[in-house]
């Protein structure tokens, strides 16, 4: 089988750390956009966090939003560019800490955009502080003895928060291992298809390794993701999938 990453992600080299999942996410978005013939029309928004490095390494019309305002910026763009696919790309810190209000209201209104949320259970860019997604007991720079879930809460799960909302699509994939990555691509493809049918908020969360801030070598980070993270963040489709 012939496989070549799209030019629009290979024209430059990325600034992500070794083993970071953001690179895989960027390629999957580019592959789906190219395969659907939408790459020239796609408008993306990126957040002031590690995902913003895509500004340098993907060729899509892109707006950099303020931290946590990536999703609402995309919603605004979609209102004035109704014929363009619009995709918001941001992390768990952006979506579930500073941008929680945006996350909830977008779900409540079922706004017509694609959201790709890279969940690495941590604030990556700022040096690995605890996020609402941090696992119980996980050591971070702001929870050096391990996260106390009784005090700071259990890892935030979007499928619980959105359980009462009728949104277009909700799924969680993972960015490690070829089988998971293939499945994540199918989820992104479904989000794009439903978005082109104006089915409302099409949301894919992607579990992603952050070897640097987890203080783990990339292959150990992969194990941590598969063995520990998936206990709290099950993979699969929650809304608008084939299962239901």
């Amino acid at each position: 089988m012939k496989l070549k990453a799209p030019e629009r992600v290979t024209f430059n080299k990325s600034g992500f750390c070794p083993g970071c999942g953001h690179g895989v996410a960027g390629r999957l978005i580019a592959e789906v956009a190219e395969e659907m013939g939408l790459a020239d029309k796609l408008i993306t928004t990126v957040d002031v966090a590690c995902g913003s490095l895509h500004l340098e390494d993907w060729h899509f019309d892109t707006v950099m939003a303020a931290h946590g305002r990536t999703l609402v910026t995309a919603i605004g763009l979609k209102k004035v560019r109704k014929d363009n696919p619009v995709l918001a790309y941001y992390g768990d810190g952006a979506g579930y800490a500073i941008g929680m209000a945006e996350t909830i209201h977008a779900g409540l209104r079922n706004d017509n955009v694609i959201a790709i949320v890279v969940n690495n259970a941590i604030y990556g860019m700022t040096g690995g502080q605890m996020a609402p997604t941090t696992l119980p007991g996980q050591k971070t720079t702001s929870s050096p003895y391990g996260k106390d879930a009784a005090r700071f809460g259990k890892p935030f799960r979007i499928e619980d928060a959105y359980s009462g909302f009728d949104i277009g699509y909700l799924a969680r994939g993972a960015l490690v291992g070829a089988a998971n990555i293939n499945r994540a691509k199918k989820m992104i493809r479904k989000a794009f298809e439903k978005h082109m049918n104006n089915q409302g908020l099409c949301y894919v969360e992607l579990l992603s390794p952050c070897p640097t801030n987890w203080n783990l070598a990339p292959l150990k980070a992969k194990d941590f993701l598969l063995d520990e993270m998936t206990k709290h963040f099950p993979l699969g489709e929650f809304k608008g999938g084939d299962a239901k």
């Binding site: 089988m1 012939k2 496989l3 070549k4 990453a5 992600v9 290979t10 080299k13 990325s14 992500f16 083993g19 970071c20 999942g21 953001h22 690179g23 895989v24 390629r27 490690v176 291992g177 070829a178 990555i181 293939n182």
Partner: peptide, 12 residues
């Protein structure tokens, strides 16, 4: 090709 975060591989 699928797992590489840095697009090193091209399968011919």
């Amino acid at each position: 090709y699928r797992v590489c975060p840095d697009y090193v591989f091209e399968i011919l």
